[in-house]
Amino acid sequence: MENKMLPTKARVIEIIDETNNIKTFRLELIDDEAKKKFFFFPGKFVMVSIFGYGEIPLGISSSHHEKRFFEVSVAKVGNTSSAMHNLKIGDIVGIRGPFGRAFPYMRMKGKDILIVAGGTGIAPLRCLVNALLDERESFGKIWLIYGTKNKNSFCYTREINKWKESGKINIVLTTDEKCEDELICHGLVTDYLDKTDLDYKKTTVALCGPEKMIENCAKKLISLGVNQDDIFVSLERLMFCGFGKCMHCNISTKYACIEGPVFTLNEVLEMKAEA
């Protein structure tokens, strides 16, 4: 059997500055075999190697309908992510995966969908939004509530404008800090969860963001009547392997790299609080 710890090569074919701290990298796998086998649904992640600097888990942020390339969006927070920010077009990175369990994309068909993102948590959800919009007619109402610290920390701003113009999705943008822009709401994403026209009892929710945000959103969503099995949460854990060896992503009897990173809220509640 092949060595799953060994990366395959991908070339950087485009780099987009999203904010002063986040860049999106468009990557193309070099090996044709690897490209053929590269298959994913929104919510899955890859391990990206910046050779000599390290390897980090990143959610795939482009739609799974795009077969020529895929994208990851990276916040500069430490060693490896900073080295990644120094990459140029044409450079080579290593890729392992995709790993993990995705959002239940197929099961979302026909349903109303609420997507809630906080900070960099938007990355895997952008993948979901684009996938949903690719097949817009297969889904019910779609809402996106996306919150960041301030106006300058929004990713994908051009794309979000396009999404808005398409009229295919309702979007609420929020910032923790007050801002002048009248299209942006002041406050936390939790403050806007009940401000949609969704039938909460029949809505599927996808959540990704800081642990505290997830916790508060979960409470609010349950009180709004959303079924716990219809709330899907993408969790972040330290990860070094992606296939159940290193134990760093272990939560109780589960592994975030195998049963996650996307869990149902029920599963999250079942997993013991660890602190």
Binding site: S49, G54, E55, F240, C246, M247
Partner: peptide
């Protein structure tokens, strides 16, 4: 058996070890 993984850079950044 739990492990972490890190890269170690050579003298120039041409060669490295995982």
């Amino acid at each position: 058996y739990c492990f972490y993984v890190k890269d170690e850079l050579g003298f120039d950044d041409k060669k490295s070890r995982r």
